[in-house]
């Protein structure tokens, strides 16, 4: 299906990859650099030992206590999402391009829950009886005390978008999808739809995923979504979209248009045009692709992506 809005104006973009932010990643791709992956020790002697994990991105955070608490208590996905959106919004002048915050929406795609293996290990160790057997009563009596008090917020899949809305003051419509490329492709498409419907004047799109975390990498591999030799890369990206010819947003970026969302045949392989440089960023991939396509049209990226479950999103870059 084609989107309700023919074209959308890109008024902000942010991205976090192992190469750094949007500009660093753009330069790395132009230079032909590729992220390097390494096998994970936790997966040695398993059927997934030959899948690789890229080095985790380490974004610089604003020097505020809120961001430090975010790093300490919330998931890696939430942190990556928040940093990418903050970067995408940093160039907006005036705030929200003069629109009301209640007409700014957030459309998010998030990957598999980023389980913290170390914290989980503490919970599990405390829940094992003398014979090394897990027991519910021990989980309740001992294991729960090892749990992050904000575990629910660390784990709920909507938290990356919720945290972004709170940090940035976004009050309009929202939609959050999970767990692979398919959800993020829908989030981007939905943002364009929302602009076309007029339910938002500005759409913040964000996608974040941490497929390089050991438990996520193992699950992706076991599902056949990450094949032998592929590298899983944690990353995030954000776009701020507006309707062309409206409001006070400057048109500093090319427009994106002709969005088409469809679904291929069963068994169709996932295809991410950025994978040769960045590895598989899974749920982050559709927005990574759109952000880099808009920010770096000279790269000539293929603007079509196919997700694990066959959802295909394609779009065009319209250079001003």
């Amino acid at each position: 299906m084609t989107s309700l809005a023919d074209q959308v104006l890109v008024v902000g973009a942010g991205l976090i990859s192992p190469f750094g932010g949007l500009e660093s990643t753009r330069q790395a791709i132009r230079a032909g650099l590729k992220v390097s992956g390494a096998p994970l020790e936790q997966l040695s002697d398993t059927p997934w030992a030959d899948r690789l994990a890229a080095q985790e991105p380490s974004p610089e955070l604003p020097p505020l206590a809120t961001w430090q608490r975010l790093r300490k208590y919330m998931s890696a996905q939430s942190l990556l999402a928040a940093v990418a959106v903050h970067a995408a919004l940093s160039g907006l002048d005036p705030v929200w391009c003069g629109y009301q915050a209640s007409k700014v929406g957030i459309f998010a795609g998030v990957g598999l829950t980023s389980v913290n293996p170390l914290a989980g290990l503490d919970v599990l160790e405390a829940s094992m009886g003398p014979g090394g057997v897990f027991a519910h009563d021990l989980l309740i009596q001992k294991g729960l005390s090892k749990l992050n008090p904000l575990w629910v917020f660390e784990t709920l899949a909507n938290m990356p978008a919720s945290i972004v809305s709170i940090l940035e003051g976004i009050m309009g419509e929202s939609a959050i999808y999970t767990p692979f490329e398919d959800g993020s492709a829908q989030a981007l498409f939905e943002a364009v739809e929302a602009l076309g419907r007029g339910v938002v004047d500005l759409a913040v799109v964000v996608a974040a995923d941490v497929p390089s975390h050991p438990s996520n990498l193992a699950l992706l591999a076991s599902l056949g979504y990450l094949v032998s030799g592929e590298t899983a890369t944690s990353s995030s990206a954000s776009l701020v979209l507006a309707r062309p010819g409206e409001g006070g947003c400057g048109a500093f970026w090319p427009k994106l248009g002709n969005f088409v969302l469809s679904r291929g045949l069963p068994g169709e392989k996932a295809f991410d045009p950025l994978a040769p440089w960045l590895g598989r960023t899974v749920a982050a991939a559709p927005v990574m692709l759109a952000a880099l396509s808009a920010a770096a049209p000279e790269l000539g990226l293929v603007t079509s992506i196919v997700g694990c479950e066959g959802h295909r999103l394609s779009f065009e870059v319209v250079v001003n």
Binding site: Q42, L43, T46, L112, V115, P117, G120, L121, L124, E125, M128, A157, T178, P179, F180, D182, P214, S215, L217, A218, L219, A221, S222, L223, E309
Partner: peptide, 16 residues
Amino acid sequence: SLDRIMVHPSLRQPLD
């Protein structure tokens, strides 16, 4: 091998 159990896919189902 607990650290390996923690990452074992049999513990989880993706939300889809």
